[in-house]
Design a protein around this nucleic acid. Sequence first.
DNA 1: ACCTGAACACCGTTCAAGT
DNA 2: ACCTGAACACCGTTCAAGT
Lengths: 242, 242
Amino acid sequence: MAADRLGAQRRRRPTRAGTVLSHELIVATAIRLVDLHGSDGLSVRRLGAALGADPSAIYRYFTGTDDLVRAVADSLIGRALDGFVPGPSWRAALAEMGERIYAGCLARPRAAVLTAARVTGRVHEIQAVEVGLGILRGAGFGVAAASRSYHAFIDLTLGYAMLDAAALALSGAGDVAAWGDVYAGLPSGSHPNIAACAGSLEQAMSGSAYASALGFFLDGLTLELERGEKVGGRFGGPENRL
Amino acid sequence: MAADRLGAQRRRRPTRAGTVLSHELIVATAIRLVDLHGSDGLSVRRLGAALGADPSAIYRYFTGTDDLVRAVADSLIGRALDGFVPGPSWRAALAEMGERIYAGCLARPRAAVLTAARVTGRVHEIQAVEVGLGILRGAGFGVAAASRSYHAFIDLTLGYAMLDAAALALSGAGDVAAWGDVYAGLPSGSHPNIAACAGSLEQAMSGSAYASALGFFLDGLTLELERGEKVGGRFGGPENRL
DNA sequence: ACCTGAACACCGTTCAAGT
DNA sequence: ACCTGAACACCGTTCAAGT
């Protein structure tokens, strides 16, 4: 489309296969590869083949695998938060932001496992931090409290997302079968609690605990905010003084 | 020691270098490799070299890399909870269990990144689940609620552990420098919240949010328990009826 | 200016052969 | 019974050479 012509600032020579490379195309192809074959399925050589280019051409766009993975991570953040506009309620806004990121990770579990622990330092992540801090400061947190709370919030979200994504990505392949296989068969003599919980354990482990954990977390923040308002006025706790 | 002779049931032929292989020795050597060279530094070939054995000898003990990594994960769980005996307070017991696992991961961040998302299905993990469920059931949760809560608890702990371990493992190498580099330099025109929080953001991101998140979580569980006691007597909520 | 292709130094895993 | 060694099919990354 027209966007392609505008997006590609410099004119690229087409590859042998005729495709014109770009950061965006390489990232999109990488995501497709990971979705299809898992994170082990992403290699510079396969990526080259999928793009119809020599593998070494990728090093014109990214300094290496690490740089590429960070770009993938940032692209996924961008997709998850695309069109997100925080509403007036800070609690609802934070909840929506968390659920969008969580859902984005679970939608592409294999990519999430690869990227969820990375700090990208790129546009979409920066935008997310800006918006997240804005929500918290708007709620009444001072800069130190907002920074701390954002950190706790995003780690909570990415932590659950990564673990649940890992469980999903590996299901069938081995790991998660354990909950149905080894845990279901343990004798009540040696493992009374596991035996008692056998049925519900498997169910609990396959579901997600994020929603309830987020609820607890937001309750905690609300409480902190109320205490802060009593002590230090609308803009919060003592850290605001520093 | 004597334990070695007892532990090694079958007699092993020593390798060319004279070492006698065992599951334990291979796992311990793998952990040492990861500590030293990061998770990329763990390879069957390097492991063979470190053990003084042909790489292919490892396949006599583990079905493949995956199996080995799960064994490493389980060994780390065992070390983290070694000697752990839950006290009478379920809240304190759960808190100690979480902090031990979290601390264990942060003590070996490179290994934690490799293993924290894995379900091992092995002795030490099973023991941890048994103890964790015991704490929650002892607190008064029914089997379904205990299963759900254990899941939420362990994912909270491992999620924060993995993210903080990843930050630690990569610090200097790139990722985390971003908080000091790119985020500190953003103009207040385009990113007012980040600019306002610049100083405290870097500090917040390098610290851990686990302790406070765990506090929120335990508060939530306490509340749930109190509600359950009102509704369903000592052994908890409606799920107990099923 | 950008892509290619050969080269280097690695991987995991299998299986017949040794002891 | 257990370890070895060659073999197979892969890796990431670099750099001179092509167009």
